[in-house]
C-alpha cells in the first residue's frame, strides 16, 4: 500500500513534527507522478539507491543469545560492538537499553520490539530464555546470528528441541554454538548443519 503522509519537515520524525497520515492507497505507484513508459521504474530506482546505496549493508547486525540469567556472552558481544563505536540496543533478562539509556517498564516481546524498532541503534543483542520462548514465542522472524552457549535444561527435552528449532530458523547468517556442551552438540548433529559454527575451548 502507499501511505500519504503530511508533514512540514520530512527530515524529522513524525513524533517531533506531529505529521499525519491523510490517505492510504491500495495500488500505490510513485511512477504515476510523471508517467513515462520509457522510464518505468526510474523513480523506484532513485528511491532505493538513496535508501540502500550500493555496497552498504542493508541490515543491522542482530544477534540472539539463548541463555538463562546474567549472560557473559551478552556482555562480551556488547564489548565487541562498543569497541566499534556502534550504538547497541539490548534486551537481556534483567534490562532493556539503547546505548547507555535504560528503557523502563517494558518486558518480554514488547522489549524486543522496542529495541529492534529503535532507529538509533547500529546493532542489536537480544537475550532469550527457553522458558520465555515457550511462553511467548518470538517478536521477530529473522535474525542475523543465533548464539547457543549451552543446552537449556529447565524444560522438557522435546519442548527444548522445538524451541531450538524455532529460534535457529530465524538466523540468516549463522548459528554459533558451544560444541563442548555434549547435549547441544548432539542436537546440532541431528540437524541440518549448514550455517552452524562450532566453538570449543579445546
Amino acid at each position: 500500500a502507499g501511505v500519504d503522509f503530511l508533514t512540514n519537515d520530512i527530515t524529522k520524525p513524525y513524533w517531533e513534527t506531529g505529521g499525519k497520515i491523510c490517505e492510504v492507497n491500495i495500488q500505490a505507484g510513485i511512477d504515476g507522478m510523471s508517467p513515462d513508459p520509457e522510464n518505468s521504474g526510474f523513480h523506484f530506482e532513485q528511491v532505493f539507491s538513496l535508501m540502500f546505496p550500493e555496497g552498504t549493508r542493508t541490515a543491522i547486525p542482530m544477534v540472539v543469545i539463548l541463555e538463562d540469567g546474567p549472560s557473559k556472552t551478552v556482555a562480551a558481544l556488547n564489548d565487541v560492538f562498543k569497541s566499534q563505536n556502534l550504538m547497541v540496543g539490548r534486551k537481556t533478562t534483567t534490562e532493556v537499553s539503547i546505548g547507555n539509556n535504560l528503557l523502563v517498564d517494558v518486558m518480554g516481546n514488547a522489549a524486543s520490539e522496542a529495541v529492534l524498532w529503535n532507529p538509533m541503534i547500529d546493532a542489536a543483542i537480544i537475550q532469550e530464555t527457553a522458558k520465555s520462548i515457550e511462553a511467548y514465542g518470538l517478536a521477530y522472524s529473522v535474525s542475523e546470528c543465533v548464539i547457543l552457549p549451552r543446552m537449556p535444561s529447565n524444560n522438557d527435552p522435546e519442548t527444548v528441541k522445538k524451541i531450538l528449532s524455532t529460534l535457529t530458523q530465524t538466523a540468516v547468517q549463522a548459528v554459533v554454538y558451544n560444541t563442548d556442551d555434549k547435549q547441544l552438540s548432539d542436537w546440532v548433529r541431528s540437524n541440518d548443519q549448514e550455517r552452524y559454527y562450532p566453538v570449543s575451548l579445546t
Binding site: K72, T73, A76, A123, C145, P149, D180, Y197, L201
Partner: peptide
Amino acid sequence: KEKTEQMAILLALRAAEIMDIP
C-alpha cells in the same frame, strides 16, 4: 567460572567475525 567467561568471549568473537565486524 573462568571457562564460562572464556567460552562467552569466543562465542562473541566468532559471531562478530561471521558478521564482518572487526
